[in-house]
């Protein structure tokens, strides 16, 4: 079983305990895939699905989309585009911040500027 598949199953089963709409069949229907395929994903019998399906699963299971993509071994297409525009700069930035604590990383995140109102 892959970490992605295990996480999908754990989240879905936890939601199903509270709400029957989170059965394998119903989740697969809402995400737009076959129940058998979702079962294989959960068991790790197949590789994680496409970016679009991974994002729909994240939304359905109320999970962070970037976390889900990372578990699926993917980089979202918008992040790929950002890196493609300035590959050396962003590769270096990510390497530099690899071991940095969260608060140090947050210091380089762009804040919404509050003005005069």
């Amino acid at each position: 079983m892959t970490q992605f598949g295990r996480t999908v199953r754990e989240l879905r089963e936890r939601l199903r305990q509270e709400d029957a709409r989170f059965s394998l069949r119903q989740v697969a229907k809402r995400v737009g895939i076959e129940p058998a395929y979702l079962s294989k994903i959960e068991r790790g019998d197949v590789a994680p699905p496409s970016e679009a399906t991974t994002l729909r699963l994240a939304e359905e299971l109320d999970a962070d989309p970037d976390w889900f993509l990372a578990l699926a071994g993917k980089v979202s297409s918008d992040l790929q585009e950002i890196i493609r525009r300035r590959p050396e700069l962003f590769a270096e930035l990510i390497r530099q911040l690899r071991e940095a604590p969260d608060d140090a990383i947050l210091r380089v995140v762009r804040e919404v500027r509050d003005g005069d109102w």
Binding site: L106, R110, V112
Partner: peptide
């Protein structure tokens, strides 16, 4: 601090 992430305003108060 407030950041803009995926068309959401994200409020964080790590302090």
């Amino acid at each position: 601090m407030i950041t803009l992430e995926n068309d959401r305003l994200h409020f964080r108060f790590p302090e």
